[in-house]
């Protein structure tokens, strides 16, 4: 009995290793299939109109670099990029400053008013934006904020607050209270406790949130289209949608634009992927 078991062990291990290899190959194939749609978009972006119509699956005979160069110029790429970066940065700073401040009491105190406030913020996760668009425009006009960077930044901050408050609240709930209580015994005010004890702990969530905010600002186009329409203030997605015409779109100009516009986000993603994962998974594990 004992002998046979020990004889089987290497066999089982080999089997396991074999299965592991099958598993690895299967996963690699799966991820290739998963990314295939994006690869197709990249391939199409280098084709000529004729090739797109006549031979949809074939690789381009010659890389149509001019698809990119012409789009690059029409988009006013660098300026749009700079505009979008600036707005994104400002929104991220504001959100990561005021959202944890609000989330702190919401996470620590449970009474009728804090619950209500939390619910009001949570409702923001589902509000369809354009129901508010026409009145919002009137408000912005009154405040003199139409066609200004601060105007768009404020709206983005407001729109991102629900998710941020939701994030921070659920994260703070997983942070043990002991530290804060010790600080309170030492005579720390809530603000001091927040600043010196809690905020450093929130750093990972903040990293993630920044990524989320960046994504939502970067990929949006309706808001800047409506509230920031000076030609020189255009954001990058607004530039992309100028390639969708009245009668459909031409993939040989839209796809290069899309790729150029998404590239900075993908680069950022490559560097910050750990933060993103951490953020998406916030609250998935009980602290």
């Amino acid at each position: 009995m004992i002998v046979s078991l020990s004889r089987q062990a290497p066999v089982r291990r080999a089997k396991r290793r074999g299965r592991q290899w099958v598993s690895i190959i299967a996963l690699l194939i799966l991820s290739l299939v998963y990314l295939a749609p994006l690869l197709f978009a990249v391939i199409v972006s280098f084709k000529s109109q004729l090739e797109v119509s006549v031979s949809p699956l074939a690789l381009p005979e010659r890389l149509q670099i001019e698809n990119y160069t012409s789009v690059f110029a029409k988009m006013n790429y660098w300026r749009s990029l700079l505009n979008t970066l600036g707005i994104t940065f400002a929104v991220a700073v504001c959100v990561t400053l005021i959202a944890p401040l609000a989330a702190y009491p919401l996470a620590r105190i449970s009474n009728r008013s804090t619950r209500l406030i939390y619910q009001i913020f949570a409702a923001g996760l589902v509000i369809p934006f354009f129901a508010a668009m026409v009145p919002l425009y009137g408000l912005m006009k009154t405040l003199g904020l139409v066609n200004t960077y601060p105007g768009v930044i404020l709206i983005y901050v407001a729109l991102n607050l629900p998710l941020a408050v939701f994030f921070y609240t659920s994260f703070i709930q997983t942070v043990p209270r002991e530290l804060e209580e010790a600080a309170a015994l030492d005579g720390c005010s809530p603000l001091a406790t927040f600043w010196f004890i809690l905020l450093p702990l929130l750093r990972p969530v903040t990293g993630t949130l920044v990524m989320f905010v960046a994504m939502s600002v970067w990929n949006d186009f309706l808001l800047p289209l409506v509230f920031l329409f000076r030609a020189e203030a255009r954001t990058i997605m607004v530039s992309v949608y100028s390639f969708v015409g009245e009668y459909g779109f031409d993939p040989t100009s839209l796809f290069p634009a899309v790729i150029l516009a998404s590239l900075p986000m993908l680069v950022l993603f490559a560097f910050l992927s750990r933060q993103i994962v951490a953020g998406i998974t916030a609250g998935a594990v009980k602290g």
Binding site: A102, P105, L161, P190
Partner: peptide
């Protein structure tokens, strides 16, 4: 704590 966020929102 809550007011800045609540005001903007």
């Amino acid at each position: 704590f809550v007011l800045p966020a609540l005001a903007v929102y």
